[in-house]
C-alpha cells in the first residue's frame, strides 16, 4: 500500500539521537524537503507544528503521526524516523515517542488522503510491527517493515 512515491529510503531516519518533540518534527521536515524540488524544510516544519497546536498527533504506544496539507506537494509524501530514546510528545497515553511518520498531502486533499492517514494509523496499531520497527537497525530494514503487508 505504501508506494515508493510515498516513502523511500532517503526519507527514513534510523537510530537518531533526538532530544525533543521540536527536534523530532524538525528532522522529519528536513527529510520531507530533502529531495523535493519545491519544499522548504522551514515551511514544512511550521505546518506540522501548526497542526500540533490543535492537539498532539501522538497515536499512543510510542508512535506519532504528524501530518499537514501543503500546496507545494502534488502527491502525498511521507518520512519516517526511529529514535534511540523516546521524546515527550504529549501523547494521549503519556508515552514517549520513538517512532514517527510524517505525512504531507496536497492542498486539494480529499477523502482518499484521510483514508491514507487512517491506514497509516492502523499500520502502527499492530504491536508486532511496532516491535520490529524498534528493533530495526537500518533504513532499508525499516522501509521493508513499513511497506510489508
Amino acid at each position: 500500500m505504501l508506494g515508493p512515491d510515498l516513502i523511500n529510503v532517503v526519507r527514513v531516519g534510523c537510530g537518531l539521537e533526538l532530544a525533543s518533540k521540536k527536534r523530532l518534527i524538525e528532522t522529519l521536515a528536513g527529510l520531507l524537503a530533502r529531495d523535493h524540488p519545491r519544499l522548504q524544510a522551514e515551511t514544512v516544519f511550521e505546518h506540522l507544528l501548526e497542526r500540533e497546536r490543535l492537539g498532539s498527533t501522538g497515536l499512543g504506544h510510542g508512535v506519532a503521526l504528524p501530518h499537514s496539507r501543503m500546496k507545494d506537494v502534488t502527491t502525498a509524501i511521507g518520512a519516517f524516523v526511529q529514535t534511540v530514546q523516546g521524546v515527550d510528545y504529549d501523547a494521549s497515553d503519556g508515552e514517549a515517542v520513538d517512532l514517527a511518520f510524517a505525512l504531507l498531502v496536497p492542498e486539494e486533499a480529499n477523502d482518499e488522503h484521510l483514508r491514507l492517514l487512517a491506514h497509516l494509523a492502523s499500520l502502527f496499531n499492530d504491536p508486532s510491527r511496532r516491535v520490529r520497527l524498534r528493533e530495526a537497525t537500518s533504513a532499508d530494514e525499516i522501509l521493508q517493515i513499513l511497506t510489508a503487508h
Binding site: L54, S56, H67, R69, S92, A109, N110, L117
Partner: peptide
C-alpha cells in the same frame, strides 16, 4: 479499543473549527 472508539487523534476542545477544516479539507 481506545482508538476504535475515540478515533486516531486527540484534539483540544479549545481548537477552532476553521483550523480543523483547514487541515482536513
Amino acid at each position: 479499543s481506545e482508538q476504535a472508539f475515540f478515533g486516531e487523534f486527540v484534539l483540544q476542545g479549545s481548537s477552532r473549527l476553521a483550523d480543523l477544516c483547514a487541515f482536513y479539507g
